[in-house]
Computed example of a mutant assay.
Amino acid sequence: MHEGLSPEAEKLYLAMLRGGRVEHGAAHDELERLGLVRDDEVRPPRSALAAIASGHEVAAVRARETAEVLAAAYAEHGANDVDFVEVLKDAGEVISTFEEMQSQAKSEIRALDPGSYLSPQPEASSAQPPALARGIGYRVVYDSELLQTELGFASVQGSIAAGEQARTFPGVPLKLVIADSDRALIAVPTVTGGNVVALLIHPSVLLSALIELFEAFWRMSVSITPGGHDDSQQEPTTATRRLMALLSAGLTDESIARELGVSERTVHRRVSRVQQLLGAQTRFQLGVQASRRGWL
């Protein structure tokens, strides 16, 4: 899945918007392929953004389907006969394994958290603070419903304050923890309900697939800002929608400032804020995220 423009293509597109010289090459070919340039003339990026945003939705559906297939297959058909998968049925064993994975991690913990299957809140871990203190990175994607409860929101904000990188996405399909690239733990509700088994995955093709699954959700998710309630819950305002419409039409900052009756510095500040809110590194990625969320 193409996340957006390459830095070279984005630089050329912005230069052409300002009337700069057309330079043919890989960057120009990329712009033509995405429909942003035609016959050496820049085109409004709305249709290209819509196509990429649609691709994100397809990727999200496929990722969820993959997660459900993986979890169901190993939960229902028994993983005891597979040497790279261990089935943990005792709650104490699941918790101790989860804590051990964090305490033994060498570089990073990655996780998908839809909330506990037995409780709607994210589960706190006593192993996280010391792991963060010794430099272990944490990247976690939370289901957006968790942020709608006071306890869930406070828990996530506490983790962010401690040093965790947190993002949110609607409909996170399973509870997953990955320690480095060595082990993964999947919590799976039993078919009869009321209980949870966990699958401990060792190095294998399955572990590699789970890592790719996490990274797909990380790319599609939106950053959670530290402190205060998630600003995205109040967005998009009418002002933000208008700003995004002007950006998607390909207007320069100078033209946008003139349309809005503000300074270019104010435009820069507003764009930077929305970029941070949506976890976008570039303005093109900002357009993709805004289009995917229906802000355009």
Rank of each mutant, 00 (worst) to 15 (best):
S204P: 00
I211C: 03
L132T: 04
A161S: 12
E150Y: 03
S119L: 02
T190P: 05
L185D: 12
A198H: 10
I201M: 01
A154H: 10
K175Y: 10
V140M: 01
V156Q: 09
S116P: 03
G135A: 09
L213T: 13
I136P: 01
Q121L: 04
L118W: 01
N195Q: 11
L146K: 06
G227K: 08
L146H: 03
V172Y: 10
W218M: 04
S119C: 02
Q128W: 03
A127S: 11
Q234Y: 09
P203M: 14
L210R: 15
S159I: 04
T237Q: 09
E150D: 12
I201V: 15
L246V: 08
E215W: 09
V196Y: 06
P129E: 05
G152N: 11
P189C: 10
V140I: 12
S208M: 03
E215F: 09
L199N: 06
D253W: 08
L243R: 13
R242E: 14
A209I: 00
L176W: 07
A239C: 01
L246S: 11
Q128H: 02
R241G: 14
D230P: 04
A198D: 10
A154T: 10
D231Q: 08
P170M: 02
S223D: 15
L176P: 07
R139V: 00
E150L: 07
Q121E: 13
T168K: 10
G152A: 09
Q148G: 01
P236C: 11
Q165Y: 08
A133V: 04
G158P: 04
S204A: 10
F153R: 15
G227V: 12
V140P: 04
A131V: 10
A127I: 12
L243N: 13
A209S: 15
